[in-house]
Design a protein around this nucleic acid. Structure first.
Lengths: 359, 359
DNA sequence: CTGAAAGCGCTAACAC
DNA sequence: GTGTTAGCGCTTTCAG
């Protein structure tokens, strides 16, 4: 009765996992020796190593990662904060992050900020209190002061997806400006002169950069861009729907529209369907982010494909490198995209992939 | 130089977070008092409570969750193991799990078994070593002996998605048999007599149950079911594609096909597109799992919609309840689905939702 | 090469 | 009500 037994009766209490002390006893060595063998640092004779191995095996002993974390003052966990856990873009990135980190025995603490800075702040604090070895953040805002204290505290941090100007941290982004410029060029080459944009929120640098690329392409081609052709939404499906409705209700609506993320593309498509417009006859459409179903949508959608896998991989690798060497120089990685051309712009079945990294 | 300073130079070392000792000192009380105030157990005078609050606030002190975890022998973390982190079904479930658990200050350790029992085993061991308060598992296999030791060790566990016969653990599943029976009935009502099935792997009870429902509905209607009409695949997109090809290559192919999960539905659709079949004229199609884009596919797909949000919520709640009272009786929760009827079966624009819980 | 022992920061008896 | 103190299980000096 001296331990944590529950009042719910005997047999319910949590069975205690074997400790290093028991393993040491079973092997007939000191706990230090067991520790040394398990952490693989060497310096233990083959004889004792073997004894320890056997005892560990036989007991099914697993070092307690919490105790180790307390002692080492850093755990084998990495925090990941995304802005939308349901967005396939992030789940794809997450998958590759996990794949890299599991090799090093790290485990992922997943947090969803849901685009809310307040939630993000709480999550950051919690991850710090959890003693994570590092954090990968898809930030909600581009204000560096939100993240600088975290980095100054010595926490290894990698920023992904959105850029944060002036933040001294590793980051992995894609060439958003170029990606959308090329998508718009594609529309221009098809003869479009009235090209609309469904943009994302201004606090997302991805939206800002993509919008820049759009303007740049129009400008280069000498095409006008009425203010009304740029509709800003919130990166959500409903926002995309509303924005597309506004564009279509214009007295002189665009003949082509670029939508700056995947969820808004679905919303835009919804508006197009409701009005039974012919795509691309009445309206050509380009989206952002390729998805398994993009090719089977009505119509198949031309998209800018982000290298989600490489993005996650690079982020995880940068984090590991920084954990190992906090003093190394800061890396800013920018990845290139592809344009996957489908029927929503050409009307033609099938798809063509255009790498956008070589002009 | 006595602490963990890096050879990379001064200023790089990790800044130490304030400890309870410093907070106590700043407040002019003992560490026990600080602990009592922060854990909200009461028994501290208002005066000292206020002093502690201020000191904590001023220092920005946050209790170290690792130390707390070691001392309490349980952490404020919950492990979640899914079979496919990219599947929108799981991300949706995950989102609602997170939503429930964050209220109780739990944080999620996310693991991806990728359908591989070996990976699942490693993840379970790691989560145990992390001292998680409980685990929510979407199991890879239906063999109870894989999970019984974990439960016997006293770990609170909730099984989701797939059922495990004979396992003494809480679980949340959906009424798979009924769901697919009703979907097939829908096809029968539309006059189909040759109904094919693209099933999932036999180790997934969801596939087994859904197949049962399919057979049951056919049987009730007195319809035949040639072996060749049932094609088994792996719940992946490519598997769905291959299976659909096999069905369509049959001398007497079915006039309607039910596909037992979302990814295979995309694959099946791919095969249908390649052959330029008219849906539902040449072939009617029913899928499993509703998704934001299901309504915009070519054609919009009739699906069985699983209550992903409720599923995650129920799982999280069951886990919390079991953590609080390990001795409580075991709950097996089964949720009902809806059938969302779209053009892939009726050829009609728009959608109808049929609750399947009332015969 | 091996073992003894000192804590990591916290909670929970236990004393006052 | 409040403070003192003994660990939780591990890693890492420090002796030998």
């Amino acid at each position: 009765m001296s331990n944590g037994q529950r009042k719910t009766g005997p047999g319910i209490e949590r069975k205690k996992a074997p400790t290093i002390r028991q393993a040491a006893e079973a092997a007939g060595v000191s706990i230090a020796t067991v520790s040394r063998v398990l952490s693989g640092k060497g310096g233990v004779s083959e004889e004792l190593t073997e004894k320890v191995r056997q005892a560990v095996e036989q007991l099914g002993f697993q070092p307690n990662r919490v105790a180790r974390g307390l002692r080492r003052q850093t755990t084998q966990t990495v925090g990941v904060i995304v802005t939308d856990i349901q967005n396939p873009f992030f789940t794809s990135v997450l998958q590759s992050i996990e794949r890299v980190l599991e090799n090093e025995k790290y485990v992922l603490l997943l947090c969803n900020s849901d685009e809310q800075p307040s939630r993000e702040k709480i999550h950051i604090a919690t991850l710090q209190a959890e003693g994570v070895a590092g954090i990968i953040i898809a930030p909600t805002r581009s204000d560096p002061t939100r993240y600088q204290p975290l980095i100054d505290s010595g926490m290894p941090v990698v920023i992904i997806d959105r850029e944060i100007q002036g933040l001294r941290a590793d980051c992995v982004t894609i060439n958003n400006r170029d990606a959308s410029a090329r998508a718009v060029q594609h529309l221009i080459e098809l003869g479009h002169k009235k090209i609309g944009l469904i943009s994302g929120p201004d606090y997302a640098t991805t939206a800002v950069e993509r919008k820049k690329g759009y303007l740049e392409a129009l400008c280069e081609a000498g095409l006008p861009c009425p203010q009304s052709y740029i509709q800003t939404a919130d990166y959500k499906q409903s926002g995309g729907y509303d924005a597309m409705c506004r564009l279509l209700d214009l007295p002189d609506p665009p003949s082509a529209v670029m939508v700056l993320n995947n969820l808004m593309t679905l919303g835009a498509l919804q508006a197009v369907h409701e009005r039974q417009l012919n795509v691309p006859g009445d309206l050509a459409l380009v989206g952002f982010d390729d998805m398994p179903w993009a090719a089977f949508l009505q119509p198949p959608i031309t998209v800018v494909a982000q290298p989600t896998y490489s993005l996650g991989e690079a982020a995880a690798q940068l984090l590991l490198d920084r954990i190992r060497d906090p003093g190394r120089p800061i890396f800013k990685v920018m990845l290139e995209t592809s344009l996957i051309i489908r029927a929503s712009t050409t009307g033609v079945t099938g798809e063509t992939v255009v790498q956008t990294n070589n002009p």
